[in-house]
Simulated scan of single mutants.
Amino acid sequence: MTRIVYVNGAYRPYAQAAIHVEDRGFQLADAIYEVIEIRDGGLVDATRHLARLARSLTELAIPPPMSDGALLHVMNVVIRRNRVRDGIVYMQVSRGAGPRDFALPPATTPPTLVVLARAHRRGWSAELAETGIAVKTVPDNRWGRCDIKTVMLLPAVLAKDEARRAGAREAWFVDSAGNVTEGASSNAWIVTPDGTLVTRQLDHHILPGVTRATVMDVAKTEGIKIEQRTFSRDEALAAREAFITSATNIVMPVVKIDKTTIGDGRPGKLSHRLRSRFHQVAEFSA
């Protein structure tokens, strides 16, 4: 249970944590966010997450709310005050509050910063990875700058709901050319019949996943061949293995896409290998 939330300079009880009614993140989705895994009370890959946060802020011309060092301090205080050993820390930065207007407010408008921490039961992801998950493909109807981690998540919310109603845990977006872009809240991967690891190249159509980057580091240390390129839904259906990556799922095997069983219907050896090595390679800051 979340007890304390940081909001604009103050640590507030959860029930009293609030932002202005005309905050641009609330009214216009004029905000970005990050989610970082907490493991044994420390942060996983914090440097990469903060770098992505800074990039998203720069792309939208939102001033940083504080230095990286100060933000790390705030996150660690929130983690301690919520007594979280394993879980996630969520941070959101909006362009701030002011009379509702499509025009950007003065550059001097202070950004809004919210940081909260939430505990997850240790091992839930590992248990799910033992059986793997199903994925539902959906048309990609998102805006053209998916590389910026904004809070404009309605297409992802609807895709997740469609997946849930189809008995799947995640949705994969498919573009007009029939190529998989990414998951609703994850990056998408396949393993080709010859054992090559494939994930889409970084461009404006996908989020530069932090877990994606670390998994690539793991693959390189293991001598696994990697290709960053587009792959079609049809290629995914014929893959030896498939999986998703994200801060909460780490490496999560996909055993079914739509109505097609992937491989032999069980989590693959390569997915398991990458998952088992992930935290040995990822950055950890206590």
Rank of each mutant, 00 (worst) to 15 (best):
I226H: 09
R164V: 05
P64Q: 14
D101S: 15
L153R: 08
H279G: 06
E227S: 13
S67T: 12
L197I: 00
S125F: 10
D217T: 06
P139Y: 01
H73Y: 12
D264C: 10
G183D: 07
I250C: 12
T211P: 00
I206F: 05
S94I: 03
R83K: 13
P110D: 06
L116H: 08
L57F: 03
T260F: 04
T47V: 02
L43E: 03
L50T: 01
L72E: 00
A159D: 07
D175I: 02
V157P: 05
T2A: 06
A134H: 07
G87V: 02
A236Y: 03
A107G: 15
Y6L: 08
L43N: 07
D101W: 06
N82A: 06
R277I: 08
R200F: 04
Q280I: 09
A107F: 09
F284Y: 15
I226S: 05
G263Q: 01
T137L: 06
A239E: 00
D264M: 11
D40I: 04
R118N: 06
E22H: 13
V281A: 06
A97F: 00
K136P: 02
V251S: 02
T221V: 13
V255C: 13
I88L: 09
V151I: 14
G209S: 00
A61M: 04
P105H: 12
R233Q: 14
A159H: 00
Y6Q: 11
D203K: 13
Y14P: 12
R142C: 08
T137M: 10
S186R: 08
R240F: 10
L128P: 12
V281P: 11
M152L: 15
A159G: 08
F278H: 01
Q280K: 14
P208Q: 09
D203V: 12
R80Y: 02
I36H: 00
M91G: 09
V35K: 02
P110Y: 07
S56V: 08
L104R: 15
V174I: 09
G41T: 07
Q27R: 15
V191L: 07
R142Y: 05
R12N: 07
E222H: 11
V84G: 04
A242P: 07
A159W: 08
R275T: 12
D264H: 12
R164Y: 04
G96A: 03
H20E: 04
R229S: 05
N179T: 09
I206S: 06
L57P: 10
A70P: 00
A236Q: 01
A103H: 13
E59H: 10
P155R: 04
V174N: 11
P193C: 09
E37C: 12
R233F: 09
A70R: 14
L274T: 01
D161K: 15
R55G: 12
T2W: 04
Y14F: 14
L116K: 03
A156Y: 03
S271E: 00
R81G: 14
Q27G: 02
S246A: 11
R3H: 08
L28F: 06
I133L: 10
V77S: 00
T260L: 05
K269I: 11
E37A: 14
L153K: 06
L202S: 12
E22K: 11
V198G: 07
I262M: 10
N76W: 09
T137R: 09
V78A: 01
A184N: 10
T199D: 08
A213E: 13
L60F: 02
D217G: 04
H120A: 01
F284R: 15
W124N: 13
F102M: 14
